[in-house]
Design a binder for these strands. Structure first.
Lengths: 148, 148
DNA sequence: ATTTATGCAAACTATTTGCACAAGA
DNA sequence: TCTTGTGCAAATAGTTTGCATAAAT
């Protein structure tokens, strides 16, 4: 039982078939702990890996990982889309000029930069709450539509 | 002093030169009160207007209006970018399946849908706080860098 | 007269897709 | 073997840009 086997198991548990390129991607994503990375960067980093992975596959895999809950897609004000290996409930500071992302933990009791980093000020706050139809009601609505 | 003159004045006050196409765009944006619209929709609506405006110009003008504070660019989870004529401090519900946007007023004392609309549930909450360098400190940092 | 905006088409970036081939269960 | 993933290249969507022309101050 080695590291790769653990990673393969990790993917399997999440319903993601552990192919060679997915493992390569998972390794880059999770080896160094929490990170924020975009498809292109990931692709570049994979260049150093033994396994060849095309850019299209990087996109497809990131999307699959997001759907499986292995990573979380984060859109930074529409200017940048990246994937966060921390899937817990948290938000982000984004320093546009430096293209830097800083996590904001939901509970800041642990002391990890919950406040604005020194030397910066807030220029904009954007909160978007995504809604989906409540299943029970969707059914009811469907019935209504069928009768209309 | 007619409506167009008022609109022209409105643009001027915000440092935006009131050209013919900018007035046409402003009319579509502001005539019917608060709205959320994207560049392409706006372009289509302008088709009905007497003034010809190219799509590239729509993009440029929206960007200019945003910079001038006439509208506010809103990115909905990286899936959609639109412009909100309400520049006040507020956030958004986004129903992906219906491509519908609902304002969340900062103060919900006025009773305008501060709660989740009936039949929906939250699927995701994304908050991004944009930071910029604090001017005073930027100066200090610049000095430090100069000495380093 | 001088500055700034517009139109158009072309360039560009980010992302997705179709299809033949390869790999995993 | 059967299903699902991958590579590639091409398609697509959204947005920006260069340059000659036109309009605003």
């Amino acid at each position: 039982m080695n590291y790769d086997d653990d990673m393969a198991a990790h993917l399997s548990v999440h319903g993601v078939r552990p192919t060679r390129q997915r493992l390569a991607i998972a390794n880059v994503l999770f080896k160094d702990g929490g990170r924020h990375i975009d498809a292109t960067c990931l692709y570049v980093e994979l260049g150093a890996s033994a396994t060849k992975v095309s850019l299209a596959t990087v996109y497809n895999v990131l999307k699959a990982f997001d759907k499986a809950g292995l990573v979380r897609r984060v859109a930074l004000g529409g200017e940048r889309v990246l994937y966060d290996t921390d899937t817990s409930n948290h938000h982000h500071f984004f320093v546009v000029s430096e293209d830097r992302v800083i996590d904001i933990k939901a509970s800041n009791a642990d002391g990890t930069s919950p406040t604005i980093p020194d030397g910066y000020r807030i220029s904009r706050v954007e909160t978007v709450i995504h809604l989906v139809q409540d299943d029970a009601r969707v059914f009811a609505a469907g019935t209504l539509l069928g009768n209309a």
